[in-house]
Design a protein around this nucleic acid. Structure first.
Lengths: 255, 255
DNA sequence: ACCTGAACACCGTTCAAGT
DNA sequence: ACCTGAACACCGTTCAAGT
């Protein structure tokens, strides 16, 4: 329900209704000079951040494809050309949005992992997968931005999205490490750590994308079922790679 | 390598180079009237199909996002407004492209299944997954169009994409049936057919999307590894849901 | 140093007018 | 019945000119 499946038919020739009440940004004072904030200053002062916030909100409200530089400029109360003083292109703006989304996502993962002992690799692997699924499910627009291939090899280490790349590499390394640890402890049926890592990633990525892409209705999965089934799917995978027939240690069996 | 990751920087203000040699469509004669085909007739005769073909090729060459109605019109040699006599909107044109892609995909699946005996449900399930992965991998653009949520509840049974929906439902039904059969034969560890069905779908969809979205380089999976690993991932999943420790019947073990 | 406003080359879509 | 061509409301991006 977070955004319409089709990006609002554009409605040509009709000036858009409402929503356009963004003339003066409600930022109130907040700028460094202690003077009266009544008259909008010529220099914005913090435009870069405001643009990223506007685009970030747009992504959450209506999905990544609907974000336009001009709309972000409108919401920030500046002219159409102004953003290009701060971002080389629309993609660069989106990369900044992706970096911000990834920052928040990373925080949630850290929180989820804090609750799991370091010496239980499979439980950590599971917690990572669950945090990934939950976050993606609850932030489909931001999940899409992060996953968009276009934004990634955006010049490799180009300052903009370098945090994005680093965070991603961290997740890749962690998951490989935990699987290797689990394997060393004799917890896994297979010794092919990379295979299990890629399969696990494909599983959670695919599930999250099915949600974001609106596939679940046609697979007969109702809205309320989606999150519980995400967990069940993850556990099915873990049970499949783990040695023995019992459920993964540390999870309550599904009633 | 099928398309650039970024949609070609638009290069404003410069008229595009080459490529514009599409003035007269190379369709030669072919039209019903036996007259000389030298002068382009005012009425195209088969515009609808030509537009779908043009868009279909565009999808393969440069990805779905780059398709424009105007470019399809250009390739068909008609004016910008002409397509709207045949398609209500850009989305309707894309839905027609998706239907055509799905038609071909369905054919490939049928071929793959023809080689597997009807009484071996797990092998059929595997063949379906493999055909899905292979087709998606080799036709990333068309895979994306088919998967695009926007094109689906395009008015439910709206004539345009009704074949698309029917084909999809068929795949859903087949996979459920085979899992149920396998379960009845005592081949599976779990009795939750729907869960295995959704998990399997998430796995193959996620893997195919990782390919289409360009994720594999950062996961350390080289181009040449992608297809073999697809198969291995599928078998890992099958080994996980199947009863017993041996490999799935009918597949050669990975050396 | 940063922003405006007008421009250019696109795009989707409509619609009168042509054939 | 189908197509053209001009139009409108967008969009990304550039650039001289303003502050």
């Amino acid at each position: 329900m977070t955004r319409p499946l089709r990006p609002a038919p554009r409605s040509p020739r009709k000036p858009r209704p409402a929503v356009a009440a963004h003339k003066a940004p409600a930022k109130a004072a907040g700028t460094r000079s202690g003077k009266a904030a009544a008259s909008k200053p010529y220099h914005h002062g913090d435009l870069r951040r405001v643009l990223v916030e506007a685009a970030f909100d747009l992504v959450a409200e209506r999905g990544p494809e609907t974000v336009s530089v001009r709309e972000a400029a409108r919401r920030a109360g500046v002219s159409p050309g102004a953003p290009f003083r701060h971002f080389e292109s629309r993609d660069a703006l989106m990369a900044a949005v992706a970096a911000e989304a990834q920052r928040r996502f990373r925080q949630e993962i850290a929180t989820a992992l804090a609750a799991v002992p370091a010496d239980q690799p499979l439980r950590r692997f599971r917690a990572l997968g669950l945090a990934y699924l939950r976050w993606a499910m609850r932030n489909p627009g931001h999940f899409e931005v992060i996953s968009d291939g276009r934004l990634f090899d955006f010049d490799a280490a180009q300052g903009e999205a370098s945090g994005l790349k680093a965070d991603n590499a961290e997740i890749i390394d962690m998951s490989a490490q935990w699987l290797a640890d689990a394997s060393a402890k004799g917890l896994l049926r297979s010794a092919d750590v990379k295979l299990m890592q890629i399969a696990g990633r494909a599983l959670v990525y695919g599930y999250a994308r099915m949600k974001a892409d609106g596939h679940f209705p046609r697979w007969g999965v109702g809205e309320a079922e989606i999150e519980p089934m995400a967990e069940a799917v993850l556990d099915l995978f873990l049970a499949g790679i783990a040695k023995g027939d019992g459920p993964i240690k540390g999870r309550a069996p599904r009633a």
